[in-house]
Amino acid sequence: MKSKGARLILQPAPLLRSGLTTPAAMRDVVYALVPLVIGASWWFGLSALLVLLAATAGAVITEWIFSLGAARGQSLQDLSATLTGMLLGLTLPPGLPLWMAFVGGAASIGLGKLIWGGLGQNPFNPALVGRAFLLGAFPTAMTTWQAPSGPAGFLGIIPSNLALPLQQPTVDALSSATPLGLMKFQNQETPLPDLMLGHTAGCLGETSGLLILLGGVYLALRRSIDWRITVAVLFSASVFSGLLHLFDADNPQPIVALFSGGLLFGAIFMATDPVTSPVTPRGAWIFGIGIGVLAILIRTFGGYPEGIMYAILLMNATTPLIERVTQPRPFGRGRPTL
């Protein structure tokens, strides 16, 4: 029998390893997105898969091209580009021409991540940078929505998906309005069960509240996301929209406000991006509250029906400041100066 000799380990810290690597963290989020992808293809058919694929291809190909000459080597295997592409794809309308989705994926990775120095260096959420770029570049296509076809139209492709590169979709698609658009421009409410199950027009991943919550609970249990941020966004958004509803009954009830538009998706998948959100617990609360209030502010008083994207991007910009203010104070020292 061999006795296990004591081993003297002579190496610098860290000696304890948790096994959490970048690809593992990314994979967790991808798993949480799977129900959403299935839900999106259920409601929007093959179009949903094509748009998702195009956005992911744009992100992955851009990452691949830019890491060809990079000193740190190929960075595709950390899965972050795939995840960014998927997140972007889930925030796009189902009828978006595929070449635009591809451009969006490339802009996400190129403008959102790589020019800042790659993973971990970017101040803004890359997927949302790509979406903001698309909304600025192609405002019409990005705000043309399709009513969900349901399983009957699974094999059908929305004709505007297939527009040639750099060309407009030539066929006029039957368009529909999102719950938020209906509320803002026609003062018409969507019933809550539809919002829960996803039987509404909207971006691919944002329509079904239940599926998003499912992914969110999984991520929170796996501790892949900071639950404080999500809770803070949802809490502040419901309080603020509740106040507005009391003040003027034309504004939606808090529960409708939470489940319509991209608020839930943004609160769970976008705002919690560990790179662009504060690491301190108090900072996470401030960050989340800021997003919730800004999103409802833009929805109610701004020109756009939905404001979660700009709310998150704006709060991303304040992350370094929040982190500096909420740094734990070393015992016996004064407050850090700004």
Binding site: P97, M100, F133, G136, A137, F138, P139, A141, A163, L166, Q167, Q168, T170
Partner: peptide, 8 residues
């Protein structure tokens, strides 16, 4: 049928 990139 060119789709202009308005942002540019």
């Amino acid at each position: 049928h060119f789709e202009p990139w308005v942002i540019m």
